[in-house]
Each structure stands twice: as structure tokens, then as C-alpha cells.
Design a protein around this nucleic acid. Structure first.
Length: 575
RNA sequence: CGGGAUGUAGUUCAGUUGGUAGAAUACUUGGUUUGGGACCAAGGGGUCGCUCGUUCGAGUCGAGUCAUCCCGACCA
């Protein structure tokens, strides 16, 4: 490829709406072009990167006995009605009608298609286990796409589905897929990706992990214990708190005129929020019925855990006068009985705390749940906090970090095989539902994530395994006959040797040429110029500045191939 | 769906009390330069998001609408 005919302009300045580095570099470097909200076209450099990522995904999926298949992007709504998701998923699923008025959907994930493909083809236990995967376009009508390729509405994804005849076999394969994912991220140059426990969300199923690249611009919050290695998405993280034992005091109503927030009440009563009980109000989306969560005053509600507990979607409550509650003074004692009340475990060991009295301008002090309210069920619905107690090793070691989810794996169980009636005949002559696992990686997000953690102030530094080209050949002063001749010969020689080379043959100033090369982030660079040719040499260097040396032109091919091999080997897993 | 912001040249942005549409950069041509975003000269390129209104006259004022971005809510 010659830069003179490469489409995709490189800019000095990024558009003002790029808020993260990877987005800015991918726009400035001529990688992507926005087509609409959350929809992008890719220029040649980005396409070459995603193709390489896809090839790594293909090789690794094939390595764990995957069969590559292809599902349709557009599916009949009736297929999604079989699983129940046509109605259960919100407007993220893009629905439309075909010319005959039939419901259609754009695929946002392909469990239904996978089951549809497999159910007539795997009627005997002898076919199992098997895994099918595809690399294909997904469309999710996200309420809000952002960050360039980090969150888009249309994106390419590798999604895999495995089918098993026992939970044990699923777990065996799940471990293999887990290891396969570690290999994928290592090969793509981001070995620092970590797996965290996750909430299964709408996918159903029990065990699931997300693979997270830790970076401050990440959209997910991750709970980590550096002591024992416990890692969890904060949505799924246990929150364990320790309450100092306090003396048991009698329940007492106190006048707290116009003191409503935890801070105000605790300030007025000269106590700490950890000795108070906070009420957080929600309403079920279905009927707007109230759900009140009580938890220790300094904590916050983990809404994912709340939803999972009450098995309903909720939103922050809009309080009206006829609800029989007084905001600012809500407490566990004396509430109307038609309200769902959830007690967080943080309250379990608290002896004498402050809580609202359900009466305007009054709070209780000295409240004790067991004594004043009787037996209640405590559930964990609080967010984990920095410095909190690790649920595994028990130390006060929890740290909170941000991460980008670059992949995930789920143990789905029989949710889809049952709802879509996929059965096989087992060796004991009985019909059974296969047990499924599913495994996803977003290709474009992976490219953006790699850029996010692998760049300097001039541009991306692509790992050799996914770089758009392996060698960037720069000819400074193409008007110089010798430069032209040496560069042309090197370009041809590198291509003959199977090296992926991009050749900047434009007659432009060195500054522009080097800036463009930095933006293209190709790991190895060869510069041909009159200055070095005077001593019979060309310059050979690395984009990450790890080395720079003079070579004779005839040594370039051999040295480039050696460096490529070394750099690739450094990103190749041992097993 | 809430809160905020922005829509003017390919890109980044100016545009005064309402009076013929501007710059930088990129692009084209010619010349001079030549190792980290050079210079001179001459060019091409815009229904000022859209609609309606006020006005002799609207990029500018008013109303509406659409779109994009950011923060939330949401999110296999």
C-alpha cells in the first residue's frame, strides 16, 4: 500500500466532540468516519486491524473445536417470540415490519438463531458437545452510544454458543473458553485484561465473567481485592460491612425540624452516617408500586442487585402526596403495609441507629431492628465501597477501578433450549434439553480499547499482531534519485518477503510524513533519506522508541523479519 | 427519558447594532524549500441544520422542529 493513494485524511486537530484518546486518534488518523449516531465506516487501516483481530479470534475459536457458522442479521420476530425476548427486551432491539407486515428484528445477539440452527441438527447425544461461532454485525439501538468505537449501535462481534449434555461438561468447557480468552487478549497485545465476576443480566444463567481492560475511561466499575485476587463487576460484587458494637439504647423519638438528608440529620444529632439508616425510594416500572430500601447511611444502593432480588425493573421514585410517606423522615418503623421494604445486610449488626420516624420533622434514635421491628429478612443490595471488606479473604482491602468490557462468557443453562424446545435423545433413551454456554467479544471495541491503553501523545502504538501494517517505509526527498531508487527497491523487496509494508512515497516535508506515520502507529519504521544514504545506510526504528539503528539497505528485509518474529513471539502464549 | 451544550467550507472555528459569506487548515496549479505538521503566488469549494414568523432586508431576532455531542437513567 502506498500512502499517496491511501484514502482517509489525517488531521492535526481532533473534532471537539472526541472526549477520549482512542476516539480522537482514530478520527485524526483516518481510521473511522462517523455515518450517524453510533454508526461508523472503517477506512483501510481500521479494516486491516479488525481483520487481524478477527483472524486471531477465528484461530483461537477453531483451537477449542469451534465450528464457524453464519447467522442472519435480519430475523423474523417470530423466532424471538419463541424465546420470549421479542416482548421482554426494550427498544434496544430494533423491530420493523417487512412488506407483508411481518415483524422483523435486527440481531443484537444470536442465541435464538444458534438454537434454531442447532435444534434439528443435534437430536442425538452423540453430537455433543459442540460449539458454533460467528463473526458478524450486531445492531443494538443503544439509548446512548459514546466514545467513538467504545460503544456503538452497530458493531462487529464474535459470538460463540456451546451445547452440552451435562452441567459438568459445560463447566469443563467454560474453563477452556476462559483460557482461550486469556490467549486472545495476550495475542492482541492486551495481556493485562482481567476476568471479573459479573451479573448475568437479561441473558439469564448462573455463572458469568466479564473480561475487563482496566482504564479510567472505562464504563464499568470493578471491585478488586489486591490481597486475594477477588475481582467482580460492582453490579455483582458482594458488599460486606463491619459495624462497631455499640451499647443498646432505648428507642426514642427526637424533634429534627427540617433536617432531611443523612448529612443534615447526623450533623444535628452529632453522630456519624455509619450510625444511621437511610431510605432509598424506587417504583416498579410495571405498576409504579413503591419499593423502599433501607441501608446504612453512608452506603449506596446497587440497583442491579435490587432488581435481581425483587425480580422487577425499577426506577427512582417520584413521590406524591397520596403515598402515605414523608420524604426526608422515612424510617422502617410505622410505614404503610402496602409498601415493599428491603433491608440491606449492613443494618443486621447495627444496635442503636438513627432512622426516620415517618412523621414530618421527627427521627428515631436508638433503633434496633430485632427489638423494634421483629424478624426481618436481610439481603445484600448495597454497593461495594473503597476500603470495604473482601468477601473472600475478609480483609479491608477492596479497591474500586474502572474498566472496559472487552469480552464475556456465560453459563446459560437451558433457558433457550427449553423455551425454544430443543431436545436430544440421550443414551438412556430419554429426551433432554441441552445446556448452553455463550461467549462474546466485540471486535471494534477491542481495537479502540487497545488504542486506549497503547498510545503516546502522537498516536496509537499498535501491537505487531494486530497492526494495520508491520513496516512503515518513509522516503524523505522523493525528488532525490537515489532515495527514490532505494525506497522503491526496499518496498518491492519487503513485499516479496511477505512483509506487510506501507510506503509513504509522497513528496512532502519530513514533519508531515513522521506525524502521519505516528498516527498510523505501525510498529516498525524504515526511513530512507539523503542524510543516511550518504553513509550508505537507512534508518530502522520502532514506533515505541525501543530502538533505532542504521542498516545497509540490503539488511532491512532480514532485520525486519527478525524483529517481527521477536515482537510476535513476545505476544504468543506459552501453552 | 431527564439535565446541559452545539449546529456556518472536507476539518477546526470566527462572524459586531440585522445590510453582498470570513479565517486557518486541507484540496488544485506554478515556483522556492526539505529530518518533526515550511514559504510565495494564483485558484476551486458554503441553500449558514430545517420550517415558519418579524423586517425593505435575517447566519444574526422570535417560535417550532430535526440532528449531533456531553452528564445521568438505561445497557448480552
Amino acid at each position: 500500500m502506498k500512502v499517496s493513494t491511501l484514502l482517509g485524511e489525517r488531521f492535526k486537530k481532533a473534532p471537539g466532540d472526541c472526549t477520549i484518546d482512542s476516539h480522537a486518534f482514530m478520527v485524526r488518523g483516518g481510521y473511522i468516519k462517523s455515518v450517524g449516531t453510533g454508526v461508523f465506516s472503517l477506512y483501510q487501516p481500521a479494516k486491516r486491524i479488525t481483520k487481524k483481530i478477527e483472524n486471531i479470534l477465528r484461530e483461537e475459536m477453531d483451537r477449542i473445536d469451534g465450528q464457524e457458522v453464519m447467522f442472519p442479521v435480519v430475523m423474523p420476530g417470530s423466532l424471538w417470540q419463541e424465546s420470549g425476548r421479542f416482548d421482554s427486551i426494550g427498544s434496544e432491539l430494533l423491530r420493523f415490519k417487512d412488506r407483508n407486515g411481518m415483524d422483523m428484528v435486527l440481531g443484537m445477539t444470536h442465541e435464538e438463531a444458534a438454537v434454531q440452527l442447532a435444534r434439528d441438527a443435534a437430536g442425538s447425544y452423540t453430537k455433543y458437545p459442540f460449539m458454533i461461532y460467528q463473526i458478524q454485525t450486531k445492531f443494538r439501538d443503544e439509548p446512548r452510544s459514546r466514545g467513538g468505537l467504545i460503544r456503538t449501535r452497530e458493531f462487529t462481534m464474535k459470538d460463540a454458543y456451546s451445547f452440552h449434555t451435562s452441567q459438568e461438561d459445560l463447566e469443563r468447557y467454560y474453563k477452556i473458553a476462559y483460557r482461550s480468552y486469556e490467549r486472545i487478549f495476550t495475542r492482541c497485545g492486551i495481556p493485562q485484561v482481567v476476568a471479573v465476576k459479573s451479573d448475568s443480566g437479561m441473558m439469564g444463567g448462573r455463572v458469568s465473567h466479564e473480561f475487563m481492560l482496566l482504564t479510567d475511561i472505562g464504563e464499568d466499575t470493578i471491585v478488586i481485592c489486591p490481597d486475594c485476587g477477588y475481582r467482580s463487576n460492582s453490579e455483582a460484587a458482594d458488599s460486606i460491612v463491619h459495624n462497631e458494637p455499640t451499647e443498646i439504647r432505648p428507642l426514642e423519638e427526637v424533634h429534627t425540624p427540617n433536617y432531611k438528608t443523612i448529612e443534615e440529620v447526623c450533623g444535628f444529632l452529632h453522630t456519624n452516617p455509619v450510625n444511621s439508616c437511610k431510605a432509598v425510594l424506587y417504583q416498579r416500572n410495571a405498576d409504579d408500586s413503591l419499593v423502599i430500601v433501607f441501608l446504612r447511611g453512608d452506603l449506596e444502593v446497587n440497583e442491579t442487585k435490587l432488581r435481581n432480588h425483587i425480580k422487577a425493573e425499577v426506577h427512582a421514585a417520584v413521590v406524591t402526596d397520596n403515598m402515605g410517606i414523608c420524604p426526608g423522615f422515612i424510617g422502617p418503623k410505622g410505614l404503610p403495609s402496602n409498601i415493599t421494604v428491603v433491608y440491606d445486610e449492613s443494618l443486621k449488626t447495627m444496635n442503636s441507629f438513627v432512622a426516620g420516624a415517618n412523621k414530618v420533622d421527627y427521627h428515631y434514635v436508638g433503633m434496633n431492628i430485632a427489638r423494634d421491628l421483629g424478624e426481618v429478612e436481610f439481603v445484600s443490595v448495597a454497593k461495594a465501597v473503597e476500603g470495604g471488606i473482601c468477601p473472600v479473604c475478609g480483609k479491608h482491602s477492596i479497591t474500586i477501578k474502572r474498566g472496559i468490557e472487552v469480552g464475556n462468557i456465560f453459563q446459560l443453562g437451558t433457558k433457550y433450549t427449553e423455551s425454544m424446545n430443543m431436545q436430544y435423545l440421550d443414551s438412556d433413551n430419554t429426551l433432554k434439553y441441552p445446556i448452553m454456554g455463550c461467549y462474546g467479544i466485540g471486535v471494534g471495541r477491542m481495537m479502540a480499547s487497545i488504542c486506549e491503553v497503547s498510545h503516546d501523545k502522537f498516536g496509537p502504538i499498535w501491537p505487531i499482531t494486530i497492526a494495520p501494517w508491520q513496516v512503515h517505509l518513509c522516503a524523505l526527498r522523493t525528488d532525490n534519485e537515489e532515495v527514490r531508487k532505494v525506497a522503491d527497491e526496499l518496498y518491492a523487496a519487503l513485499q516479496r518477503a511477505g512483509v506487510e509494508v506501507i510506503f509513504d512515497d509522497r513528496s512532502i516535508s519530513a514533519g508531515v510524513m513522521f506525524s502521519d506515520a505516528d498516527l498510523l502507529g505501525v510498529p516498525l519504521r524504515v526511513v530512507v533519506s539523503p542524510r543516511t544514504l550518504e553513509r550508505g545506510a537507512v534508518e530502522f526504528s520502532a514506533r515505541d522508541k525501543s530502538f533505532s539503528e542504521d542498516l545497509k539497505p540490503e539488511e532491512v528485509v532480514e532485520n525486519a523479519k527478525r524483529k517481527i518474529a521477536e515482537m510476535t513471539a513476545a505476544l504468543t502464549p506459552e501453552d
